Simulated scan of single mutants.
Amino acid sequence: MGKKQTARNQLDDDFEIEGNQTYARSLGPRGNHQHEVEFIDGSKKLVTLPPKFRNVVWLKRGHYVIVDPSVGVTEKVGGEIVFVLFPKNIKDLKAAGKWPAEFSEPAPAVTTQEEEEQSDDDLFVNNNRPIMSDTESESSDEE
């Protein structure tokens, strides 16, 4: 069975939340197949991505997952990802009324201090050219 067929099976699988499994939003990878996630109640924990998902699904910041906090618990790790939710799955959950209201609003944008200082409207400044101000260019036109 190839990777594409495995990914297709993952996408088509039906799932149900069992026991103490809960929804979580990925805050990003932290290395060694571990991801930091935010749960419905706002708590953040480190969880592992099991080997069956590692080469099939790419989990990025803002993706939603189902986490089982009772599996793979160690001193640093607080659970294991049981299922990765695709947009189709989230749409089905919202239609069924099972999607948590806490995740209905969009994920908060993670910005760094540099991004806040520099907006997208700023133009690139080429330091290899002399900078001419508007007053200099007007005075050279008048002469």
Rank of each mutant, 00 (worst) to 15 (best):
L59N: 00
E115I: 09
K88Q: 15
K76Y: 09
E136V: 01
G42Y: 04
D134A: 13
G62F: 05
Q113C: 02
P100T: 06
A107Q: 08
T22P: 02
E114T: 09
Q118E: 14
G62Y: 04
N126K: 10
G97C: 07
Q10D: 09
E38A: 09
G42C: 07
A95L: 10
P87C: 05
E16G: 02
H35G: 00
V65L: 13
A101I: 12
R8G: 00
S70W: 00
V82N: 06
E138I: 12
I131K: 14
L85N: 03
K3R: 15
V57T: 12
W58R: 13
E142L: 12
R8S: 10
P106H: 05
F103S: 13
E117V: 01
N9M: 08
K60I: 00
E102S: 14
D122T: 01
V57W: 04
E116M: 03
E18I: 10
E102P: 02
S140M: 06
K3L: 14
G97V: 05
R8Y: 06
F124Y: 11
R30K: 15
N20Y: 04
S140A: 14
E114V: 11
M1D: 08
P100S: 06
A24I: 08
D121T: 03
D41Q: 00
F39R: 05
E114N: 09
S70T: 15
N128H: 08
P69C: 02
S70D: 11
T48M: 12
L85C: 04
G78F: 07
A24T: 10
T48V: 14
R30A: 11
V57C: 03
V65A: 03
T112R: 09
E16V: 14
E80R: 15
E138V: 14
G79A: 12
K88W: 11
E36M: 07
E38H: 03
I40M: 07
T6P: 00
P108R: 08
Q21K: 13
A109M: 06
V110T: 13
K91R: 09
N32A: 12
Y64A: 00
E142N: 12
R25E: 11
P87T: 07
N9S: 07
K44N: 02
G72T: 15
V56R: 02
A24Q: 08
Q10N: 11
K98I: 04
V65W: 00
T112S: 14
E136F: 01
F86W: 10
A7G: 00
V125Y: 09
